[in-house]
């Protein structure tokens, strides 16, 4: 069963030190600086586009309704360099995804991390030192 879990916590130190997002096209001020949200969901669509990519994820709410969340990342060249390929997130892929939510309450977030149901981890902005492979 796909649950819906929101963790809105302040991780200022870890987030800032781990931040590798470049955000050259526009500022990232529309996203919360320190809060994170994490959901379990199913990939609806991966928009692998310049200058930014969007991973759309359907999240089932507690009342059974579904909200489509959009997770924004950099463009294809940055994602490919960081090991995120379009085929990694086909429609229907189950995953747990984490990002910094939009300040205005819309269901969008700056994509930080995703863990597919098969356990493979993805860091679209680059793998932070704290998540170094053993």
């Amino acid at each position: 069963m796909i649950g819906n879990r929101i963790n809105a916590a302040v991780f200022a130190t870890a987030m800032l030190l781990a931040s590798t997002s470049l955000q050259a096209h526009h500022s990232a001020v529309m996203f919360e600086e320190t809060k994170e949200v994490t959901f379990e969901g199913v990939v609806k669509e991966f928009q692998f586009t310049n200058p930014h990519s969007w991973l759309l994820v359907d999240v089932t709410n507690k009342d059974g309704s579904v909200t489509t969340w959009g997770f924004e990342a950099e463009g294809p060249s940055t994602l490919l360099r960081n090991g995120v390929r379009p085929a990694d997130f086909r429609s229907g892929t189950k995953l747990t995804i984490t990002g910094r939510p939009m300040r205005d309450g819309r269901p969008g977030a700056l994509w930080r991390k995703a863990v597919r149901a098969d356990g493979v981890e993805f860091y679209p902005g680059g793998r932070p030192a704290s998540a170094a492979r053993p």
């Binding site: 529309m30 310049n50 200058p51 930014h52 959009g70 939009m102 969008g108």
Partner: peptide
């Protein structure tokens, strides 16, 4: 313009926000 989700605008206070997102 390739992906309408990437369209941003200047807010009244001079900051940046997304326009209408297609998935909302």
């Amino acid at each position: 313009n390739e992906n309408p989700n990437n369209e941003v605008y200047k807010t009244p206070d001079g900051s940046t926000n997304y326009k209408d997102l297609t998935f909302t």
